[in-house]
């Protein structure tokens, strides 16, 4: 019995792994072909080279040489693609001529902050959303359920960047409770871990609050819907017939079963959180990948835009895959597609 199960698991993982690889390949192709499909000289898009009277954006010969070598300008297409993949395997994502640094380095600097922000927010949003969703499903049809539903949907009607702006305006500028920007105060750089830690959390508060509020409705709706599906299953009816308490049924029978599709969906939609991340970091000046994307957009630095897109996609895929692994070993009923 267990042998069959294990085989089923491996096959599942291999199949899923294959799917992920094909997704990665498609992303790579997208990244590679997009600039080359655009009208005009792809090299100018890649490097933003132009004669400007503001010397700061003129490509100096050093940067130009680096970029030409990196993109293999002049080589046939297939060779360029091989060069591209080769560079990626070495962690070379190109050179950001405006920021005057390798793209990989820029991303490496910013990524930890984004992860910190996004992971905390997703966790918080999931916990709150799931709890509320279960509760809503339990009290289906009542005023409480209806009230929750209206509140959460109304919350989602507020654009993330507007919500963040309001919080910044009222809680930071007017009330002075939270900092105005950034992930930490430079003055505290030399202080103790405790002081620095508190400072970082203090700076994290509003961004996390905004992103959590933006993400929570999705989790709530997913959970509520999954719970309602689960509650129609036979074993629930049976549990009720046995006389189990409602709360027991909710939390010990329905929720664990509803949780699988919910968490799968949450993982699947991690990519959507990237949007919230961009808005939140921009408004609060939080030095993460989102802010980097917005800065790169302002100067049309395509190397950075492509690099961040690639990394964000890879991260989402990686977390999906991890979650797959996690569940395969947890739940023996996982289906092999």
């Amino acid at each position: 019995m267990s042998c069959i199960k294990k085989e089923g698991r491996s096959t599942y993982l291999y199949t899923r792994g294959g799917e992920y690889l094909s997704t990665i390949l498609i992303i790579l192709c997208l990244n590679f072909f997009l600039p080359r499909l655009m009208p005009g000289d792809p090299f100018s898009y890649l490097t933003g080279q132009n004669a400007s009277s503001d010397l700061s954006t003129t490509l100096d010969s050093k940067s130009e040489a680096i970029l030409r070598a990196y993109y293999g300008v002049g080589d046939p297409l297939w060779k360029q693609f091989c060069l591209y993949c080769q560079n990626l395997l070495h962690g070379n994502l190109g050179y950001a001529y405006y920021f005057k640094a390798p793209v990989a380095q820029l991303i490496a600097q910013r990524l930890p902050w984004s992860l910190f922000l996004v992971v905390t927010s997703i966790l918080l949003a999931s916990v709150i959303g799931i709890t509320a969703g279960v509760f809503s499903a339990w009290k289906r049809g009542t005023v409480l359920d209806r009230g929750f539903w209206i509140i959460f949907l109304s919350l989602r009607s507020i654009p993330t960047f507007f919500l963040g702006t309001l919080l910044l305006l009222f809680l930071s500028f007017q009330a002075g409770i939270f900092p105005l920007f950034g992930a930490y105060s430079i003055e505290k750089a030399g202080s103790t871990w405790l002081v620095q830690g508190k400072d970082i959390l203090w700076h994290l508060a509003l961004p996390v609050l905004t992103l959590t509020l933006a993400e929570v409705t999705g989790k709530y709706l997913l959970t509520r819907s999954a719970m309602l599906d689960t509650l129609e299953e036979d074993y629930i009816i049976f549990a009720r017939a046995r006389g189990l308490a409602e709360s027991q049924i909710m939390y010990r029978h329905a929720l664990p079963n509803a949780l699988l599709p919910v968490v799968t969906q949450i993982a699947l939609r991690l990519g959507m959180a990237a949007a919230g991340m961009i808005y939140v970091e921009t408004i609060f000046g939080y030095p993460g990948m989102g802010k980097l994307m917005q800065e790169a957009l302002a100067v049309r630095d395509f190397s950075v835009l492509q690099g961040t897109f690639l990394i964000t996609s890879l991260l989402v895929l990686a977390s999906n895959f991890l979650l797959d692994l996690f569940y395969v070993y947890l739940d023996p009923r996982v289906e092999v597609r």
Binding site: E19, S22, T23, I27, G271, A275, T308, S313
Partner: peptide
Amino acid sequence: RFLDIFLTIPHLPLMLLLAAY
């Protein structure tokens, strides 16, 4: 297959990239 890939890829970064061109 296409839908799966589409849903997984983060949208806004790709939107930004496209719109920037």
